[in-house]
């Protein structure tokens, strides 16, 4: 329950911090940190326009997407406190429940009959497929290292063996961070601020959503950021007592947001055709972690 509340709080400011970082780095004053949340509240108050091509799939998809993210959020633990849903192999459930949301956002995009949205849907399906192996191998290595198969137990036992595991945790943070970028369609995979529909991935899929539905999708996006941020936090806090862990949580979330913002300020988006290779390369970083674990366990060399 603790993690649920913390993630919700982090979700409120995460995207705001990103855009604030970007504006400061480009020499502007920029909007307030809570601006994305205000935008969403405004959207909830608006009416909606539906395309006459769409069917009930388009109407129910945002709700399913939103609830899939919320359920995934319930799985994430915080230090010693488990998530509301916690069992052996819960990380498999975590990945698959997020995939359910993705399935529906993809078919909702196809429901509009627009070729732009079809293009975005196609890319989303392909890239998310490539990002999955990295996640599973990462968690597999951690499971091997700790001998546990649930999020909370893995994270709790991660650093009991030896402090070298912190090095692996840094690598793991990199992998999770990149997965966060892919899942949320941020640089360097996707540029949310581009104005050309042909080059977007996630943004182009939700072109036809408006009002309440768009609000749901955007707020799910905010939570997704914070979920991955929380996973990264969990890599480091281990069994720290709460008085250290909670400040660390916010510090790391803030750091992740600032880094995301800086990447977006200084980097250009990859060429679309290079994305697949790049994402699959993440898997090799995961493999590196796997071999690191083998070394730690003395099974290797």
């Amino acid at each position: 329950m603790l993690s649920f509340c913390l993630i919700l709080v982090a979700a409120l400011f995460f995207t705001g911090v990103i855009s604030r970082t970007k504006s400061i780095l480009s020499g502007r004053k920029g909007p307030g940190i809570l601006q994305p949340v205000k935008d969403i509240i405004r959207l909830f108050k608006k009416g909606v326009v539906y395309s006459s091509t769409t069917s009930f799939i388009f109407q129910i998809a945002p709700s399913i997407y939103f609830s899939s993210v919320v359920i995934a959020m319930l799985v994430v633990p915080f230090g010693q406190s488990k998530g509301l849903i916690s069992f052996q192999g819960d990380f498999i459930f975590f990945a698959y429940v997020l995939a359910l949301g993705k399935f529906f956002s993809i078919i909702a995009a196809l429901d509009t009959g627009s070729s732009f949205e079809g293009m975005g849907a196609s890319r989303e399906a392909l890239y998310s497929m490539f990002a999955e192996p990295a996640f599973f191998i990462l968690l597999g290595s951690m499971a091997l290292l700790t001998g546990q198969t649930s999020f909370q137990e893995i994270f709790a036992d991660l650093h009991l063996g030896s402090p070298i595991s912190y090095a692996l945790a840094v690598l793991a943070a990199f992998v999770l961070g990149m997965i966060m970028m892919i899942e949320n369609s941020r640089m360097p995979i996707d540029d949310p601020k581009t104005h050309l529909e042909l080059t977007m991935i996630h943004e182009v899929m939700i072109l036809d959503n408006s009002g309440f539905d768009l609000g749901l999708i955007l707020s799910a996006g905010l939570m997704k950021f914070a979920i991955y941020g929380a996973l990264i936090v969990n890599l480091f806090i281990g069994m720290f007592p709460y008085e250290y862990a909670i400040p660390m949580f916010f510090a790391i979330q803030l750091g992740a947001a600032v880094i995301t913002g800086s990447i977006e300020s200084f980097m250009a988006r990859f060429r679309m055709s290079h994305n697949a290779q790049f994402i699959f390369a993440l898997t090799s970083v995961s493999l590196l972690i796997f071999f690191g674990v083998l070394m730690l366990l003395g099974k290797f060399i």
Binding site: S51, S63, S67
Partner: peptide, 29 residues
């Protein structure tokens, strides 16, 4: 939980949209 949550959110959406203007148009091209 997943099914219930989806239903709850969908009904909230339904209820909210009762008080908002809902219109139909062509797909944004």
């Amino acid at each position: 939980g997943l099914i219930l949550l989806t239903l709850i959110i969908f009904s909230i959406r339904k209820w909210v949209l009762l008080h908002r203007p809902v219109s139909a148009g062509p797909t944004w091209g």
